[in-house]
C-alpha cells in the first residue's frame, strides 16, 4: 500500500520530514512503521493517522497519512 509518513521534531534528525512509501503491506500498524524507522516506541508521544490520534497497534490502509511526534509540549 502507499502511505505518507511525516516525522516531527528530533525524529527528523538523520531521517526525513515527509516520505511517500509503498514498502508496507495493507494492515501494517503505525507501531511497525515507527519501529522500522529505527525509532523507539517509548519515545513516541503522539501518533496521528489522517489528522486523528491513533493507537500504535491500529491498522493502516491505502492512502493513509501517518504523523509521528515525540513527547512534546508548549503553550
Amino acid at each position: 500500500m502507499k502511505i505518507t509518513i511525516k516525522l516531527f521534531a528530533y525524529f527528523r534528525d538523520g531521517r526525513f520530514k515527509k516520505r511517500v512509501s509503498d514498502f508496507f503491506d495493507e494492515g501494517t500498524s503505525p507501531g511497525e512503521v515507527i519501529t522500522s524507522l529505527g525509532l523507539d516506541l517509548e519515545d513516541v508521544g503522539v501518533i496521528m493517522v489522517n489528522n486523528r490520534h491513533a493507537a500504535a497497534d491500529s491498522c493502516l490502509t491505502e492512502g493513509d497519512v501517518l504523523a509521528v511526534f515525540p513527547r512534546i509540549g508548549g503553550g
Binding site: 511525516k6 516531527f8 521534531a9 528530533y10 508521544g45 503522539v46 496521528m48 489528522n51 504523523a67 511526534f69 515525540p70 513527547r71 512534546i72 509540549g73 508548549g74 503553550g75
Partner: peptide, 19 residues
C-alpha cells in the same frame, strides 16, 4: 516534554496543532 521545550521552545506546537 521539558527536554523538548528546551530544544524547540513552545513553537514546537505549530506542526502538531496543524496536523
Amino acid at each position: 516534554i521539558s527536554q523538548a521545550l528546551g530544544q524547540y521552545g513552545t513553537n514546537v506546537l505549530v506542526n502538531i496543532i496543524n496536523e
